[in-house]
Structure formats: C-alpha cells, structure tokens
C-alpha cells in the first residue's frame, strides 16, 4: 500500500445561511494515508487560503471522537463509511486512490446550514432545555455511593448518556427525525433514581419540543443506530415512546407543556 493517495472531492459550498449553495470540485493529490479526514480538509483549506479563496467551513473541536462537534455526510453516509466513529476519527487509509467523495452537510429543516458543511444545531439545545436535566437543586455533589444504583441500570444509563449530540441520527434518517437523540437523553435519566420524579413530564416536554423544532417522526428504518458514532440502540426509541404514551395517556403529569416543571 502506497503512503499517499489522490482523491476527488465534491464539496457543498454555501457562503451563508440565506445564500444559494452549490457543489465544487477539488482535486487532492498526494494525501498521506496516515492523515485523518479533517487533516486532509485542513490541507485543502491551506491550499485554498494560499490561492486567496475562501476555506471550507466545517465544525470540529476535540478530534478524538468524543465532543460531538464534527460531522458531515460523505457519499451519503453520516460521518463517512466507518461504523461507530465520528468523521474526525476517520482516516484516509480507509479510501482507495482515485476515490470520488461527495461531502454534504447534515440535511434537516431543524439544522439550517450556517456555512458550507456547518449546520446550526440550536434545535438540539432547545430539546435538551425543555427537560433534559434535573429540575431540583441538589446542592453539592453527593458521595459516589450515597444513592445506590444497580450495575445493570448504571450500565444502561451510561449507554444512553454516551450520546454526544452530533446529529448524525437526524442526518441519516429519511425523515430527519431526532428520535434517537431525544430518546437517548430521555432514557439516560429514566434509568436512574435521580431521574424518576420528573420522568414523565420530561419525556412529554422533550418529545413535544422535538416536534415543535420541525424534526420528522420515526419510521423505524433504523438508519440512526447504524449512523450513531456511539452505537446508541434504537431500543431507546421504544422506551421513549412507551414513556411518552404513558405520560400522555396514563400519568397525571406531563399532559401540558406548562405544568410547573422546575427551571
């Protein structure tokens, strides 16, 4: 295997939120196979800056696959072809020389493009703000074992809490639904004793907010799970729906969005 490859990039360029976007082609020759995908884009951006052109805007922060900042679609696959990884942890050795790669931002009405491959994910913050927290002030951090949580419950809660909010689930869903994200955030609390008092109000408010933000509904195609860099299971969607229906049809809380939820 040679140490460098040549790739053709077709990148969505959009100068601003309101501006008209279009695809532009770039030839990248002699890309090191040891480079990460974002490092390859850094190289392209240097080239563009040296030529006096606008560099490609894309989000990134930790580049370790844990912060949730990065993400775009490569040849129709959110975060690229590898499973269980963000695009920053994708490496150029994954591709053959001469590959044609189409780079597109997450496409969703609730994720408007800010610029190029960068989208505005405020809608996720709005869902989170609708109930993805404990509304009671509990003072300082308690001793680790003050509230006992069973091993299974703790493990399950952690699986859901692994969500980094990158938005790949929305990008991959044919309905641009935020079901996996919202259900993971709901489910993480629902597994723990601290999450119980507000459990049903939380799910009602977060699900309703998700809909208000313009995300689609779940069609159970399971694309979200496959695209999720943290491998969050679609079982959280079932659990979330169950809690939502209970909240709306059975429980005496969670019926309206104005039910005195603290915070």
């Amino acid at each position: 295997m040679s140490d460098t490859i040549n790739v053709t990039l077709e990148v969505w360029r959009q100068p601003g939120a309101k501006a008209q976007g279009r695809f532009e082609r770039y030839e990248m020759n002699g890309v090191s196979t040891h480079a990460s995908f974002l490092e390859m884009l850094d190289g392209l951006n240097e080239k563009l800056i040296n030529e006096g052109k606008e560099p490609i805007a894309f989000e990134h922060d930790c580049r370790e696959g844990i912060c949730g900042s990065c993400g775009f679609v490569i040849n129709g696959q959110a975060h690229g072809p590898d499973r269980g990884t963000t695009v920053c942890q994708l490496h150029m050795r994954r591709f053959k020389s001469g590959t044609h790669l189409v780079l597109e931002p997450w496409r969703a009405k609730a994720f408007p493009v800010v610029r190029d491959l960068m989208v505005d994910r405020t809608s996720f913050d709005k869902i989170q703000a609708a109930g993805g927290y404990n509304g009671v002030n509990v003072g300082n951090a308690p001793d680790a074992n003050a509230i006992l949580v069973g091993k299974e419950a703790a493990g399950e809660a952690f699986d859901a809490a692994a969500c980094i909010g990158c938005g790949a689930c929305v990008a991959a869903c044919k309905n641009a639904s935020a079901m996996l994200f919202t259900s993971a955030k709901v489910g993480h609390f629902a597994m723990l004793p601290q999450g119980q008092p507000e459990r049903y109000r939380r799910v009602a408010r977060m699900f309703d907010e998700m809909e208000a933000q313009g995300f689609g509904a779940c069609s159970w195609t399971q694309e979200c799970e496959a695209a999720c860099p943290k491998g969050i299971s679609v079982k959280w969607i079932s659990r979330g729906k169950r809690d939502y229906l209970k909240a709306k049809l059975v429980k005496d809380s969670g019926q309206s969005s104005d039910d005195g939820f603290a915070g």
Partner: peptide, 12 residues
C-alpha cells in the same frame, strides 16, 4: 416527514 428534510436533499 418530507418537510423535516428541508428544501435541499442529499445528492448521494
């Protein structure tokens, strides 16, 4: 669901 994708869909 159709509306949720937005005006611009995916090329690939």
């Amino acid at each position: 669901n159709k509306k949720a994708r937005g005006a611009q869909g995916y090329k690939v």
